[in-house]
Amino acid sequence: MAKWDENVLLSVEHLSMRFGGLLAVNDLSFNVGRGDITALIGPNGAGKTTVFNCITGFYKPTEGMITARHEDGQTFLLERMDDFKIPKRAKVARTFQNIRLFGGMTVLENLMVAQHNPLMIASNFTIGGILGLSGFKKAENEAVELAKYWMDKAGLTYRADDAAADLPYGEQRKLEIARAMCTRPKLLCLDEPAAGLNPRESEELNSLLLFIREKENTGILLIEHDMNVVMEISDHVVVLDYGVKISDGTPDEVKNDPKVIAAYLGVDDDEVDEVEHQIEQTAGSQEGA
């Protein structure tokens, strides 16, 4: 039994998502281990972002169950929750493939918006805040401290008072991760965080993600095309093709899986039979186990 099946942070069971006649995700099950970096990979159109949108509540899955488990034993059935309650209660935060920052607001303001819910309670739902009660001032200072902490980790402190839309692309990516971390998530879902980054930025991103895993006890689920990032930092890789899971294991296992190689590189016509046979065999052996 793999370690991600022992200490489960998020389990996806029999997830299917149908858009009209298109079955984007078909009976997908996998686990995300606590404290792991789990990568969800697959060719274009494999249904990775659909899975993400189901986990974060942007889509309601046609079938299946998505459960988040906190360390204290609380469980949340994500497919039944409103999208905004998933980051609020189940503590699952996400970023987007096409960056969605609050462009006209400064870096610091972006990080403050992420702490809306605790601050709202501290301001007695605005009433205490308008009257200027001291409790809110204290909570706000704490929120600024958390924002400073994440700005520091993302290397954005020197841009704290600049508009988010003014940042270069790589820093916008990092700001989006920092903003998601300001919600104090248990699971961070990143949709192609390394897309469009140069090698140096990609390197910085890797160390930021490793830091999050080590020090924050936050699990990371990421979609990524950049195999260097995937192989370097992830503990667990799930491979999707046409909405079906074709491989699940450590990076090394997945790298050598013939089905993954076939999905990514394709196979010659005369090899098709051979590969299909192999696939049947492995499928049979998995069922047997």
């Binding site: 969605r100 920052l101 609050f102 607001m105 809306h116 709202m120 605005t126 903003r179």
Partner: peptide, 20 residues
């Protein structure tokens, strides 16, 4: 206050608001 920042965030990007 958080409510005012939420208004401005809503103007900037509603989906990002919900994701937070």
């Amino acid at each position: 206050l958080p409510i005012g920042r939420a208004w401005e965030a809503l103007r900037e990007d509603e989906i990002a608001c919900r994701s937070l």
